[in-house]
Structure formats: structure tokens, C-alpha cells
């Protein structure tokens, strides 16, 4: 984890972790060594609730291209929802 590149953002929603669903209060986004993905560095998102301890975490480790495509896709979906009058 030697880049130490990390940003945190407050969020609302729910996440499903190892012990089931829990409410989310923060997302931690880093670009650093992954635990599992077979790459040297990945874009990592940890959806967490610190008040419930370190295990309240939903984690993803994405390649750079996957992360960028995910961002584009999330925004496209939100745009569709807005255009459809759902937001």
C-alpha cells in the first residue's frame, strides 16, 4: 500500500457484507495495492460503517479501466433516471 492515495466521502445507503446488510456511512476510495485482485495497484472502494467496526465493509478492487467505465456507467444511469423524471 505504498501510494497512500486515498479519499473519503460521506454516503447514504446500504451495503451487504459478510454478516448481512448494514447501513453505509462512508466510502473510502484508494489507489493502492489490492488484497486480492491480481494487479499491482487497483482502484479500491470500501463501503463502510465505522461505528460497526472494521468488519462492516463491502470491498471492491477494480482495474483502472474498470473503474473509469464504472464511473461513466453510474453517471449514465443517473442521467437516464433524471431524464425519465425519476429524480
Amino acid at each position: 500500500m505504498c501510494t497512500m492515495i486515498v479519499e473519503k466521502v460521506k454516503i447514504d445507503g446500504s451495503g451487504k457484507g459478510a454478516s448481512g446488510w448494514f447501513s453505509l456511512e462512508q466510502a473510502n476510495i484508494s489507489y493502492d495495492h489490492p488484497f486480492n485482485a491480481p494487479m499491482e495497484h487497483t482502484l479500491n472502494i470500501d463501503f463502510v460503517n465505522a461505528s460497526q467496526g472494521p468488519s462492516a465493509r463491502v470491498a471492491v478492487e477494480l482495474s483502472e479501466s474498470a473503474a473509469r467505465e464504472l464511473v461513466r456507467t453510474i453517471l449514465a444511469v443517473l442521467d437516464q433516471a433524471e431524464a425519465g423524471g425519476h429524480l
Binding site: 500500500m1 497512500m4 486515498v6 473519503k8 473510502n28 484508494s30 493502492d32 488484497f35 479500491n44 470500501d46 463502510v48 465505522a50 467496526g53 472494521p54 468488519s55 465493509r57 470491498a59
Partner: peptide
């Protein structure tokens, strides 16, 4: 001092806190 959980979960917490 970060609390307890799987090593990965605890390390992820420390990662978010800047080590």
C-alpha cells in the same frame, strides 16, 4: 488500536486513515 476483524478489514480501515 484500529479494532478487530479480519486482517484485511482492519488493514482497509488503516488504509483509509492514512496508515
Amino acid at each position: 488500536r484500529a479494532g478487530h476483524g479480519t486482517p484485511e478489514d482492519v488493514a482497509a480501515k488503516m488504509r483509509a486513515e492514512g496508515g
